[in-house]
C-alpha cells in the first residue's frame, strides 16, 4: 500500500460512496462515522440500534479486510504516545463540536453540496495539512 495507488484508492473510494448511498437509500441516514459513534455514546431511545449495527458492520468489514488483504492493517504511527492521546482527544471533541468528520462532512456533506460541510471540510483539511507541515518539518519532538 506504499506509494501512489490510484486504482485501489479510486475503487475503495467508490465502495465508501456506495456504502454511504446505501445507508441513505435503505435507512435515510447520513453515513457520518463520528455522528453515528456520538449517538451510541449517548444513547437515545429508538435511535441507537442502527448505529451499533453499522459500527459492528465496520468492525466485521475490517476483520474481513485484515484476513484477505493484511497490508491494509500494517499500521505505523511514528509520533509519541502523548501526541497520540492529544490527537485522539482533538479528533473526538472536534468532530462532535463541528458535527462531523471526513465521512459526514467530507463524503456525504460535500456529495450533497451542503455549504456547512464544504466549509467544514476546507477547514479541517487545511488545519490537517498545516499541522502535518509544522510537526514534520518545523518542530521536532512529537
Amino acid at each position: 500500500m506504499e506509494g501512489f495507488t490510484p486504482v485501489l484508492s479510486t475503487i475503495g473510494g467508490i465502495m465508501i460512496g456506495l456504502a454511504a448511498v446505501g445507508l441513505l437509500y435503505f435507512n435515510g441516514r447520513i453515513a457520518g462515522i463520528s455522528g453515528i459513534m456520538g449517538g451510541v455514546l449517548r444513547p437515545q431511545k429508538g435511535d441507537t440500534l442502527w448505529r451499533a449495527v453499522f459500527l459492528l458492520g465496520l468492525l466485521a468489514g475490517a476483520l474481513t479486510v485484515m484476513w484477505l488483504h493484511p497490508e491494509s492493517f500494517d499500521l505505523r504511527v511514528d509520533v509519541s504516545d502523548p501526541t497520540v492521546i492529544l490527537g485522539g482527544f482533538l479528533v473526538g471533541i472536534g468532530t462532535r463540536i463541528g458535527n462531523g468528520c471526513t465521512s459526514g462532512h467530507g463524503v456525504c456533506g460535500v456529495g450533497r453540496l451542503a455549504p456547512r460541510s464544504i466549509v467544514a471540510s476546507a477547514v479541517f483539511f487545511g488545519c490537517a495539512v498545516l499541522t502535518t507541515f509544522l510537526v514534520r518539518h518545523v518542530w521536532e519532538g512529537f
Binding site: 490527537g87 482533538l90 462532535r96 466549509v119 488545519c127 499541522t131
Partner: peptide
Amino acid sequence: LIVGAALFGIGWGLV
C-alpha cells in the same frame, strides 16, 4: 462548525 472542524483537523494531522 469552524472551531470543531479546526480542532479535528489538528488531531487528524498529528496522528
